[in-house]
Design a protein around this nucleic acid. Structure first.
Length: 646
DNA sequence: CCGCGGAGTGTTTTT
DNA sequence: CACTCCGCGG
């Protein structure tokens, strides 16, 4: 295959460089995915074994997409090691964790679990009635996680964003220590630990050597969104051979809130001397009209690597529209109509997407689409494994995997009638002293003696005992627990049939696993998605989850102050700049048509009104868009409007 | 000590 | 507006 012919000169430059460090600055739509895809192929053509290539990306979807495409040319590409930093870290720690004293079976705490644990610890330590304004568990989690990911002390984090909490610095420090101890004791790792311990592992010279030998060629996508830990991991993995290519775009950095630092991309050339820098500026995605707007937004940015997007496509296209509505319902009705119209004009649902800053913004549209019977898939917001009923069932599996998991014991015990927080804690603390699952289950039996609600405890004990049988498959365990849980589900939730669907969706997933720990870890770090429905549906997505993707028609909801930029991201220049980049990412997803949607009615009561987003309300930006006011009265205008040529 | 119901609160983004 | 927290009755 003549790869060179398929690429432009800059892309080829990046692809053909086999040895040595490469930094690729890739604007949106510039064929970054192609570069990675073809570089994998090129490496293999030059005798590199696929197993020696490591491709780290931000979402599992991204890695799979690039490797699948490469595999169409050469099936060996499937053997390339690819995934997210977190999933890679999990694999590393599974294999080498013993060197750090980590247990054989790694158990991963999701965000919710981590918060729950912190909440419990905080209430144990604190005299809550005196310190009324002690931070809540999610704030605690943000502070403690922020400290680790941004490489700062608790005090520094408090200074920079939680000044009103600075007097709690010592308490929070203490909670953190307790939390660390708790995780050690119960054998859990949270998201941060995966990265943290991986870096610890790589600090060991011997292990580092083994891994650099194993992964001779390292590639990292979306490098602008890596944090300190991820930057260090990249460095340690490749400092030996220096065969490392990172791809990114500082103008699309949108994960600052999670510790992403543009320093990683900025200082890459210093970390790796003689680094080759390649800029990809030709945009193959969007029409000139959409690029004009993108460039106007880019111009207002404080990004460091200067660049302009140059259209590679011929068509000038139509100016993006800002459309004004009276309220969110009118807007939703219009968007739904427009989607229909485009479907009739040849843009199937799969090639259209509705994007938004925050999930709640999409609720009126979701209702409208449901009424109209127009199916869609949604990214962002609450994940299904974070819903209460799924967590309930998983908690049962978790105690099977780790009988010391107090949080899960608490959860499953409080599901029983007559058992509240206090009773659950009493039982859980007795279980903590048990030596294995069997004696843990015996604690339940003992507690049941003379206890009013003993039949429920007995039933729980029996179910767990049966599910714990060694040679019972993961799917079998799930089945037993799901059956046991069904009456609880019906009792607990009015709308249980919907929730039952979620559990049924989980069943086939459990069947595909032979190891319970792997199932539990994957649910948290690599959400298995159901491929079959994905192909044909309209997409609704947060901007964050839309990164790297593109559609023919894009609708961006909520180009309003307080929404984009979000009202809780106005504390500093940096935060506002990140919101601006978010806006940039959103508009650069569109290939042919871009609609920016605004509605006047605010959601803080009848007298509140929205203002146009500051990112649009700027002379040069406004020049690149066309305005349509549909806010006066009814929706009449919708149907009369000249239908857009597709 | 459980669990219900009312009052109050704060509301993002993801692995 | 959904979720959490708090107080009270059982």
């Amino acid at each position: 295959m003549n790869i060179e012919k398929l690429l432009n000169p800059s892309q080829w430059e990046a692809v053909k460089t086999i040895e040595g460090p490469v930094l690729v600055i890739a604007g949106p739509g510039s064929g970054k995915t192609r570069v990675i895809e073809y570089r994998v192929l090129h490496l293999m053509e030059n005798g590199v074994r696929p197993e020696a290539i490591l491709l780290l990306t931000f979402t599992r979807r991204a890695a799979a997409e690039m490797l699948n495409r490469a595999a169409e040319h050469d099936p060996r590409a499937r053997k390339v090691e690819g995934g997210t930093f977190h999933s890679f870290a999990y694999k590393l720690l599974k294999q080498y964790g013993a060197n750090l004293g980590l247990p054989k079976n790694l158990l991963i705490l999701d965000e919710d679990d981590a918060q729950e644990a912190l909440g419990k610890i905080a209430s144990r330590i604190n005299l809550t009635d005196e310190n009324k304004k002690f931070p809540q568990k999610n704030t605690l989690r943000n502070i403690i996680s922020g400290a680790l990911n941004k490489n700062l002390s608790i005090e520094e984090i408090l200074e920079r964003g939680y000044e009103h909490l600075s007097r709690f610095a010592e308490d929070i420090e203490k909670i953190k220590e307790n939390y660390v101890a708790y995780k050690r004791e119960s054998g859990y790792l949270d998201y941060d630990d995966l990265l943290f311990y991986s870096r610890e592992l790589l600090k060991d010279e011997k292990i580092r050597e083994v891994l650099s030998q194993k992964y001779r060629f390292v590639m990292v996508d979306e490098y602008q969104d890596t944090n300190k830990l991820q930057g260090d991991i990249t460095y340690l993995l490749s400092a030996g051979h220096k065969n490392v290519m990172v791809v990114g775009d500082d103008a699309q950095s949108i994960y600052g809130f999670r510790g992403a630092r543009h320093e990683n991309i900025m200082s890459f050339p210093e970390q790796f001397e003689n680094c080759k820098i390649v800029k990809l500026e030709s945009n193959y995605r969007s029409t000139q009209a959409i690029l004009d707007l993108s460039n106007a937004v880019l111009e207002n940015m404080e990004n460091k690597f200067k660049k302009t997007l140059l259209a590679a496509r011929e068509s000038a296209g139509e100016k993006p529209n800002i459309i004004y509505f009276g309220d969110a319902e009118e807007e939703a009705a219009w968007v739904k109509e427009k989607i229909h119209e485009f479907i009739l004009n040849g843009a199937p649902p799969a090639r259209q997407a509705v994007l938004f800053r925050s999930s709640y913004v999409s609720i009126p549209l979701q209702a409208e689409l449901a009424r109209a019977g127009l199916p869609f898939k949604i990214f962002g917001g609450l994940k299904f494994y974070e819903t209460a009923h799924v967590k309930d069932v998983l908690a049962h599996l978790k105690v099977l995997a780790n009988f010391k998991d107090e949080l899960s014991w608490s959860r499953i015990l409080t599901l029983l009638p007559g058992v509240g927080g206090k009773t659950a804690e009493t039982i859980a603390s007795q279980i903590r002293r048990a030596g294995d699952l069997n004696s843990a289950l015996n604690v339940l039996v003992r507690y049941a003696e003379g206890y009013k609600y003993s039949p429920h405890l007995a039933e729980l004990k029996q179910t767990l005992a049966r599910a714990a049988v060694q040679n019972l498959s993961v799917g079998g365990k799930f089945g037993l627990i799901a059956d046991y849980y069904l009456p609880i589900l019906k009792e607990k939730f009015d709308e249980w049939p919907n929730r039952l669907n979620d559990l049924e969706a989980l069943r086939p997933i459990t069947l595909s696993y032979t190891d319970l720990n792997d199932l539990l870890a994957d649910l948290v770090i690599e959400i298995p998605e159901d491929r079959q429905q994905n192909e044909k549906l309209l997409t609704l997505s947060t901007i964050h989850s839309a990164k790297g993707l593109e559609w023919d028609v894009v609708y961006l909801l909520g180009v309003m102050e307080g929404v984009l930029p979000s009202k809780i991201a106005l504390k500093s220049r940096e935060e506002i700049e990140e919101e601006r980049r978010l806006f940039y990412v959103a508009i650069t997803r569109a290939r042919n048509k871009l609609f920016l949607l605004f509605h006047l009615a605010g959601n803080m009561g009848p007298m509140s009104f929205n203002r146009l987003s500051r990112f649009l309300d700027d002379p040069s930006v406004l020049l690149s868009v066309e305005h349509k006011d549909l806010s006066n009265g009814s929706n009449d205008g919708i149907y009369d409007e000249e239908s857009v040529e597709y």
